[in-house]
């Protein structure tokens, strides 16, 4: 594997790990990090988080990474992957984001 791909995987892996660690700890989720698929829906179907949980997720990401999540950003709060994409873009690593170009 080239260094670029290794670095891209390492960046995303670190962000995802920190998001999952925060979610599990702050929301007392009965899962391990391995259990949480990055595309699982956070709100509604999936983990079924409510609006208070969503606020906790916003605070967790803002405190952990120092990035802002604007009020009403439903698209960013859909999954661990959408949060990770936002963090990677906002911290200067858009190449590691996973959305369609």
């Amino acid at each position: 594997m080239t260094r670029d791909i290794e670095r891209q995987i390492a960046l995303r892996k670190d962000v995802v790990h920190r998001i999952k660690r925060n979610l599990i700890a702050r929301l007392s989720l009965p899962y391990t990090e391995e259990d949480l698929h990055e595309d699982v829906s956070l709100l509604g179907s999936g983990l079924g988080l409510d609006s208070l949980d969503a606020l906790e997720v916003v605070l967790a990401v803002e405190q952990e990474f120092g990035v802002k999540i604007a009020e009403g950003s439903v698209a960013l709060l859909r999954s661990i992957n959408t949060l990770a994409d936002h963090v990677l873009r906002e911290t200067g690593h858009p190449e590691a984001a996973g959305g369609l170009p």
């Binding site: 595309d39 698209a75 859909r78 996973g98 369609l100």
Partner: peptide, 15 residues
Amino acid sequence: GQTLTMPPFLPESLK
């Protein structure tokens, strides 16, 4: 191609 974050668009209902 690429691996990607799913779903790859925001459904209208979420708006």
